[in-house]
């Protein structure tokens, strides 16, 4: 039997404040990964400014294309497809990757693959270990907080979602109150390790019989506590505040995840998204899963694959490539692209 030919995909990601290219082999092996981050720029404003982000993306797009090919020791003729995140994200930012990938597809004749950013985040797991299906993913980032049931590499459905703020968004907002610049997650996580949950903030929707999340109440409780202390000139312990906030976030994420693991008994559990870099969350989920009678394989991608990067897009694109799901040159950015919702959520 002839050996299956390797599939090499050049992938683009530009949905928010990172411009990234990667060459990924067979959806599993990273041959190159280039990430140009704009954090320093947006720190001037305390958060991502969409127009500024778009301007930075176009500055680096041709250079990082060449770098990804050079770092992989490959050239256009060795590639099999070009993939790009087309949503969800900031429309102006997405359009740089989409325009670049389409132009590259036209100039090289290589097929084009449009990838859902969230599917990409989850597929960072495929770069780490083999996923056995069905799988369950907890996808937590600055824009999303979702529990996703994966029947196979292509068919995903959302079984739980945030009703308001994403978890990462809540971190950035309370970070501002604590004087921590965006992105605040890393610092809050580090402070939380040293503090104690003394404030007992509310755990929203913990008792409800669904897999949805809500973080705006927690955020408000946090802000009220901080403002009240300000007014009466009381100094609160920042580390305890951070620990209390993080404990409330993690309690809800862990509890709902464990409940879903018990109900669906997936073969693999995946933690994805930028907040997946949170040590407190990683530790707690591992502990909870260890207690389960039916233990899934756990894949938590390394930190550099948790944030936005093109390698994860290349991984997801490979599955689409194998299924023959290609895009054409009318591909457009779709800022509000969503994975399908499970039937249970459509009421």
């Amino acid at each position: 039997m002839p050996e299956k030919k390797d599939v090499r995909i050049l992938a683009y990601e530009s949905s928010c404040d990172e411009t990234s290219t990667a060459v990924v082999k067979n959806g599993r092996e990273i041959e190159s990964l280039v990430v140009a981050t704009q954090i320093k720029s947006h720190q001037r404003f305390g958060g991502v400014v969409p127009e500024v982000a778009s301007r930075h993306h176009i500055e680096v797009i041709t250079q990082i294309t060449k770098e990804a090919l050079a770092e992989a020791g490959t050239n256009w003729a060795d590639l099999d497809a070009i993939a790009v995140t087309y949503g969800p994200g900031l429309v102006g930012a997405l359009l740089i990757g989409v325009s670049a990938a389409k132009a590259a597809s036209m100039a090289t004749g290589l097929p084009l693959i449009g990838v859902d950013h969230i599917m990409g985040h989850i597929m960072a797991a495929q770069l780490t270990d083999e996923i056995t299906y069905p799988a369950l993913a907890l996808q937590v980032s600055g824009g999303h907080t979702e529990l996703v049931l994966m029947h196979d590499p292509l068919n995903f459905e959302i079984i739980g979602d945030t009703r308001d703020d994403a978890a990462g968004e809540a971190y950035d907002k309370i970070g501002r109150v604590l004087g921590v610049n965006y992105p605040a997650g890393k610092t809050i996580d580090a402070w939380a390790q040293e503090g104690h949950d003394t404030f007992h903030f509310p755990r929203a929707m913990l008792q409800e019989d669904n897999y949805d999340f809500s973080f705006s109440g927690l955020k408000s409780a946090f802000i009220n506590t901080a403002h009240h202390a300000d007014q009466i000139h009381e100094q609160l312990n920042k580390k305890d505040l951070a620990a209390s906030f993080q404990a409330a976030v993690i309690d809800v994420l862990a509890e709902k995840t464990v409940r879903a693991l018990k109900q669906y008994e997936p073969k693999t559990f995946i933690l994805g998204g930028g907040v997946a870099a949170n040590l407190g969350l990683r530790t707690r989920l591992s502990q909870e899963i260890n207690k389960l009678a039916q233990q899934p394989k756990v894949i938590m991608p390394p930190l550099k694959l948790c944030g936005d990067n093109a390698a994860m897009i290349g991984a997801a694109a490979y599955n689409l490539f194998e299924a023959g799901q290609f895009a054409d040159l009318t591909l457009n950015a779709n800022p509000s692209l969503e994975l399908p919702y499970a039937a249970s959520m459509l009421n």
Binding site: E51, S54, R55, I58, I61, T62, T65, K66, W76, V91, G92, L95, I96, S99, A100, K102, A103, A104, M106, A107, T108
Partner: peptide
């Protein structure tokens, strides 16, 4: 239009660079 400009400019940057 900022967004419009970037679509055209990105496209020709890529064409010229690759070809």
């Amino acid at each position: 239009s900022y967004t419009g400009l970037r679509i055209g400019v990105t496209t020709v940057k890529m064409f010229a660079s690759i070809l």
